[in-house]
Design a protein around this nucleic acid. Structure first.
Length: 289
DNA sequence: GAAGCGTGGAC
DNA sequence: TGTCCAAGCTT
């Protein structure tokens, strides 16, 4: 079984696909993984320059593994969620030692690597190696919620039913299925967007349950916690001090960027526990060596 | 399963 | 100087 509107989505993709660097022919599996990790919760526009700079510095997993994890955190810059940089470095080390420098090709092998979860494992297995798996990211989930379920937004986490649905829609042919997966994702990113979807440009309006129902609005969700004053903001400030310093920094330098001493200590402890910050014997702090 | 984890752009 | 959201993962 496969999607009755697969041809329409594939045709739309042929016309509208963005010319992104990680989609260029000849891009290495490792480079695609780097792009996928960077794209976790970070918009394409901000990833583009970071992706180019990262691969210019470390073209292969072996090159990254040969450098200190702290350098990965520094190069990560302000992309956000810097644990991703640390885990990418760990993965580079594993790939270098265990897989002789070549990214493994199956979803299960990829899933076992740090920082690679269900989505990223499927995405790399499909986009690079042509596997036939459901690729459920936020874009695909939103498209399926609307077209198939008639709801404006999907639930908080992908359900087993969602996976079954996504798998049932995959075209039989592996290569076609891979193209379908990236095409649905692109449709969600460009047309079936979270805010102000462009239904007038959509190739599958005839099949869309949400549109047929008159685009009913989802129930209002509880307001998100403000970022201002959170531990996350505090961690970000502290790590920025370390990123911007070539030398280890003193406690006083960290104290200067956050007024609340209790919260500051908690955030710093968290960064140390996460391996993002090294406390040195002399009392100073540094990115991990 | 919920909560924690950064950052900046679009409204 | 508010809210939402962006190719999620881990515990």
């Amino acid at each position: 079984m496969s999607s009755p509107y697969a041809d329409r989505v594939l045709g739309w993709y042929a016309q509208h696909a963005r010319d992104l660097p990680w989609r260029a022919p000849g891009v290495s599996p490792w480079a695609v993984l780097v792009s996928e990790i960077m794209l976790q919760q970070t918009p394409v526009s901000r990833v583009l320059p970071a992706y180019q700079a990262w691969l210019a510095r470390w073209p292969t997993p072996a090159a990254l593994a040969a450098d200190a994890p702290g350098e990965a955190v520094r190069q990560w810059g302000r992309l956000g969620y810097p644990r991703r940089a640390l885990r990418l470095h760990e993965t580079a080390t594993i790939v270098t030692k265990k897989y002789a420098g070549e990214l493994p090709t199956t979803r299960e092998q990829l899933l076992a690597l740090p920082g690679i979860g269900a989505y990223t494992a499927a995405a790399v297995a499909v986009f690079v190696f042509g596997g036939r798996h459901a690729v459920l990211d936020t874009n695909v989930r939103r498209v399926l919620a609307r077209v198939e379920t008639g709801r404006e937004f999907p639930g908080a986490q992908p359900s087993a039913a969602e996976y079954r649905l996504a798998e049932s829609l995959l075209p039989q042919d592996e290569a076609v299925a891979a193209r379908w997966s990236v095409a649905v994702m692109e449709l969600g990113a460009l047309t079936c967007t979270a805010a102000a979807p462009r239904c007038e440009e959509c190739p599958v309006t005839a099949a869309c349950a949400w549109l047929a129902a008159g685009r009913p609005a989802a129930p209002v969700r509880p307001a998100a916690q403000s970022y201002e004053g959170t531990d996350r903001q505090c961690r970000g400030r502290l790590l920025a001090v370390l990123r911007d310093s070539r030398e280890p920094v003193t406690q006083a330098r960290l104290d200067a960027v956050w007024p609340d001493a209790v919260q500051r200590a908690r955030a710093l402890d968290g960064l140390v526990a996460d391996g993002l910050v090294d406390p040195l014997p002399d009392g100073r702090f540094a990115l991990p060596a």
